[in-house]
Nucleic acid binder design. Structure first.
Length: 609
RNA sequence: GCGCCUGUAGCUCAGUGGAUAGAGCGUUCGCCUCCGGAGCGAAAGGCCACAGGUUCGAGUCCUGUCAGGCGCGCCA
């Protein structure tokens, strides 16, 4: 499937040269609006009106006269200031029927971090958006030719992990083997601990225990206990379709001395100090004012006066490692993920591997932490590497409300991802039982559809828009939803299956028989490639999700099209020979494109629903 | 106080400076003797928050105002 717009742009540029236009303007080629004549058009003449001191229609005509048209352009015409192109229908149909060529590999390596959930309780819907966004973006970037390394950061030395582990011990639950998923089990202990901390007397004891647990965590003594929670969380992530290349544990970053090395590196710059008096006496601080203007207080504490490091310091060390300023983390194989792809984990007993040292990083983190990430980015400038800072991207997403309310772990206003997925699959199962009782594998399909609905709901809007998670909306299977796209795919599969049964699979297409109905579908198909590239460039998976809705809608419209007399206009299998071959070819292309596109946003494509 | 983000149909949202601002949900009315009705068609519903500006052209860019969300610790 080649791209038509770039070819037209080149053709127009040549004509402009012949016209004597010295400085070529940006040439925009767009589809003509529905109902308008022609297939593609350009407004380039309007921008040239002032330079050439002529009326736009006249300029458009002069450009048209100097075009060296490819054989597949049937005619050009001027309307308003626009120069429009009408293409040979056979060419459009044929181009849209051809398989997509792979996109060209791009240099450099992207390190994309997402998920990074505290290993202390089950995932809730707030984590959903992060995982779906990050995983979809990774898939899109890879398809667009980027080398991508997906990393999930495990904060195993944080207070949250310590509280859960201490709670399990404190309540004597450490070794219990309930039938409950272990992350939920640990989460309940965590919540119970917080309830008990309401009591000031108990709080002192608990605080003591948590501190002690924190130290044991830092020494790496409780790794097994953390892993048990992590493994349970990974089940949920896998169920969502998310996979990773490497888990990086905070305790390993610290143990490998990356924190010290990062601080030493910064110490060599003029921007870090150890004040001996004043507010920051005894602390290790960094002056951010040259890099972030308008700060009230330019100083940022990296090491507290009591010797402990701040979160920012650890984040800076991690970022330095990601961009190759620090080495030394070792890895070992950790898991085989559902797709068969190996997952590695940092580990003291591991081997040096090629992770890290990326030319570009993407951190999928909610927008509330924009300031913190800005500081991490600026620390690269402090270190004298503005070139690296420039390739440090924060994919910021707004928070997820739950039925209009701000979520809160402590107040119990939250819903777990497992719970949401179970409910979605339950609903999908019920609909399959109702609509397709003969379904050959209802369980597999229900899983694909239920999970797909949730995942699609998480990525169909722009990341910077706050979204409200509502059951009725996120678990809907009608309208602008994942199952709508999946349904369009299943429908195409159904036709292709029947074609094979009837021995029509090899019928040759006669592209000259293409009708206006085919052309509408073909033009949407031809947008796929540029859409993926734009989604990758803008790091915006929602662009692809929106396109898939467009493509599915175009296909459904085509499928239901009727002649003015009300007769079916676009029957595939019952069409005359040649036209049938053409239609089968288009349906095959549509089916492939939907499958590919669904895969890029992390949805399965069930052949039967 | 300073900074970032958002404001488009009753609701939820699309909309690389270009042609008549589009979907879904909801409402009303139609469409399976056509390959899957989780679908399709039609109707109704818009001072694109407001005011200036830039431009041949602004929902889109700039400035200001208003409204909402979030951030600005030797917390994690």
């Amino acid at each position: 499937m080649q791209e038509i717009k770039p070819l037209l742009k080149t053709t127009i540029a040549e004509a402009l040269n012949r016209l004597g236009v010295a400085e070529l303007p940006e040439i925009i080629v767009q589809e003509t609006p529905p109902g308008k004549e022609g297939d593609y058009g350009t407004p380039v003449a309007m921008g040239l009106a002032r330079v050439l001191r002529k009326a736009p229609p006249l300029i458009a005509t002069e450009i048209a006269e100097r075009l060296t048209l490819p054989a597949w352009v049937r005619r050009t015409f001027v309307t308003g200031g626009y120069l429009n192109f009408e293409l040979e229908p056979a060419f459009l149909a044929q181009t849209a029927s051809q398989p997509l060529e792979p996109l060209t590999p791009q240099p450099g390596k992207v390190l994309l971090e997402h998920t990074s959930v505290n290993p202390n309780k089950e995932l809730h819907v707030g984590h959903l958006r992060n995982i779906c966004l990050g995983d979809s973006l990774a898939r899109i970037l890879r398809f667009a030719g980027r080398e991508v390394e997906v990393m999930n950061y495990i904060d195993d030395t944080g207070r949250q992990a310590a509280e859960s582990l201490y709670a399990l011990e404190h309540f004597g639950l450490g070794d219990s083997e309930g039938d409950q998923k272990y992350d939920h089990f640990a989460g309940e202990a965590y919540v119970r601990l917080h309830q008990e901390m309401q009591d000031p007397e108990k709080k002192t004891t608990i605080e003591h225990g948590v501190q002690e647990t924190l130290h044991r965590l830092e020494r790496g003594e409780l790794r097994g206990a953390v892993e048990r929670i992590l493994r349970a969380q990974l089940e949920t992530m896998y169920r969502l379709g998310a996979e990773y290349d490497a888990l990086v544990w905070e305790s390993d970053i610290v143990r490998e001395g990356l924190l010290e090395k990062a601080m030493q590196a910064l110490e060599g710059t003029p921007y870090v100090h150890r004040p001996t008096e004043g507010k920051y006496a005894g602390a290790f601080v960094m002056d951010m004012s040259p890099f972030i203007p308008g700060l009230e207080d330019p100083y940022l504490v990296l090491i507290r006066s009591n010797g402990t490091s701040t979160y920012t310091a650890k984040d800076i060390a991690l970022q330095f490692w990601k961009m190759g300023l620090l080495g030394g983390v070792k890895f070992k194989p950790y898991d085989t993920q559902p797709s068969g792809h190996a997952l590695y984990s940092s580990a003291p007993e591991g081997q040096p591997m090629g992770f890290g040292a990326a030319t570009e990083t993407i951190n999928v983190v909610d927008a509330r932490q924009s300031h913190a990430l800005r500081i991490v980015q600026a620390s690269l400038e402090v270190e004298g590497r503005p070139d690296l800072a420039q390739h440090c991207f924060h994919l910021a997403y707004e928070t997820v409300l739950l039925e209009g309310q701000q979520m809160s772990g402590r107040k119990g206003i939250t819903v777990s991802v497992d719970e949401v997925l179970d409910e979605a699959v339950r609903r999908a199962r019920a609909i399959i039982a109702e609509k397709n009782p003969e379904h050959p594998s209802p369980e597999t399909a229900a899983e694909a559809i239920g999970v797909g609905a949730v995942r699609f709901a998480m990525i169909k809007s722009e990341a910077k828009k706050q979204i409200d998670f509502r059951y009725e909306q996120a678990l809907s299977f009608e309208g602008d939803t994942g199952p709508y796209v999946q349904y369009a795919f299943a429908r195409a599969c159904s036709i292709l299956r029947k074609a094979e049964e009837q021995g029509l699979g090899g019928e040759a297409p006669d592209f000259s028989q293409a009708t206006a109905y085919e052309l509408e579908l073909a033009k949407v198909l031809l947008r796929f490639r540029e859409t993926v590239q734009e989604a990758a460039r803008a790091k915006a998976p929602h662009l692809l999700a929106q396109y898939l809705l467009d493509l599915a809608a175009a296909w459904n419209t085509y499928y239901n099209a009727k002649t003015p007399e009300g007769k079916p206009a676009t029957v595939v299998l019952g069409a005359p020979e040649g036209l049938r071959g053409l239609r089968l070819g288009l349906v095959r292309s549509l089916q492939r494109t939907l499958q590919l596109g669904l895969g890029l946003v992390g949805l399965q494509a069930p052949e039967v629903m």
